[in-house]
Simulated assay, not measured.
Amino acid sequence: MYQPNKGHHGLYDILETCFHEAYDSNVVITDYGQVVEVGKLSARYLAQPTKEWLDTLTAEQILAGIAWHFRRDHFSEGSWIADSVADGHMAVLVDALLDRCR
């Protein structure tokens, strides 16, 4: 997070825009840690969610999982692109949230 961007510049720009729009639209879940803890959500499945597991969660829990990825990787020296996005985990979470909200 604190290192200069070394690649994926277009993706960083999109994420920065989405991040601000999420706050502006009040879609940000600030108590994600409590949602994860109370729901006893598995850190293993949070890190690498499966569609089957996500089907058992509420929209709030899925949104908490997305926030968990943002915060976890924020404190992992900017590994978010490699871990969450490039490996497709964030896409699985977002798809599940969109399915739940339809």
Rank of each mutant, 00 (worst) to 15 (best):
I66M: 09
G65I: 02
G88S: 10
T30N: 12
R100P: 01
W80D: 03
D13C: 06
V85P: 00
L15K: 03
P49D: 03
V92R: 09
E77K: 13
A43M: 06
V94Q: 05
E16D: 15
R72S: 10
W53K: 10
D99G: 03
G78M: 14
H74Y: 13
D95L: 07
V38K: 14
E60D: 15
V92F: 03
H8G: 03
M1G: 15
G78S: 14
H20W: 00
Q48E: 11
D95V: 01
H9C: 01
P49Y: 02
A43I: 08
V36L: 15
E37K: 15
D13R: 13
D55V: 02
R71D: 14
E52Q: 12
H20Q: 00
M1C: 09
R44F: 05
L15F: 08
D95P: 00
D83C: 07
G33Y: 05
W68N: 03
R71T: 10
F70N: 10
D95A: 13
F75K: 04
V94H: 02
L41S: 05
T50F: 02
L98N: 08
A47R: 07
R71Y: 14
T17P: 01
H20L: 00
I29R: 15
E77D: 13
E16F: 10
L41R: 06
H9F: 11
Y12V: 06
T17E: 11
D13V: 05
S79E: 11
F70L: 06
V27F: 03
G88R: 11
P49N: 03
W68K: 04
S79G: 11
V28R: 04
G33S: 08
T50R: 08
T50Q: 07
D13G: 09
V85T: 08
W53I: 05
A82M: 07
V28E: 02
I14M: 08
H89F: 12
V92Q: 11
F70Y: 09
R100F: 01
Q34G: 02
V28C: 06
V38P: 00
M90K: 04
L54Q: 04
Y2R: 13
G88I: 09
S84F: 01
R72Y: 15
L63Y: 01
P4T: 10
H20F: 00
D87G: 00
